[in-house]
Amino acid sequence: MDDEPGTEEQGLPEMAGPVIYYNETVLEHFVCPRNVGQLDDQETDGFGLVGDPICGDQMKLWISVRDGAIARIAFRSFGCPGAIATSSMLTELADGKTIEEAKRITDDDVVEALGGIPERKRHCSLLGVRALQAAISDWERRRAAGDGRP
């Protein structure tokens, strides 16, 4: 498959059957996810929670903003390996970016940075992007209300 260069590099079968094969980059982010954890309340300028409260994957994401840029980012994720790896990669992409740059990060960017993800797991990459957007919206709300940092 065109969007799965990683699986081809490893010589694994294409994702035609029921089994999901992840490439080495995805596996590495699954084993050692970046920016896992949470920011304490004083440090948090924006918080995003996405996912159904009853079932399915869920993600929480915290950002700390300094001078219009993401100074710290942290996440916690309940989900499949695809959800954990894409969340990890998203935080790596967003870390240090200005808010305007961070807003433009798409799920395609996350998938591309991971070198591809099985088609059936593409929806996972949206979870992190939506959590980041929710955290940015929260930051904007707090700022408008006068209790956020610039």
């Binding site: 999901i20 992840y22 596996l27 699954f30 994957d57 309940f78 989900g79 499949c80 390996p81 959800a83 954990i84």
Partner: peptide, 8 residues
Amino acid sequence: IDGESIVL
């Protein structure tokens, strides 16, 4: 936690 993550 998620079962697929445990399996992997």
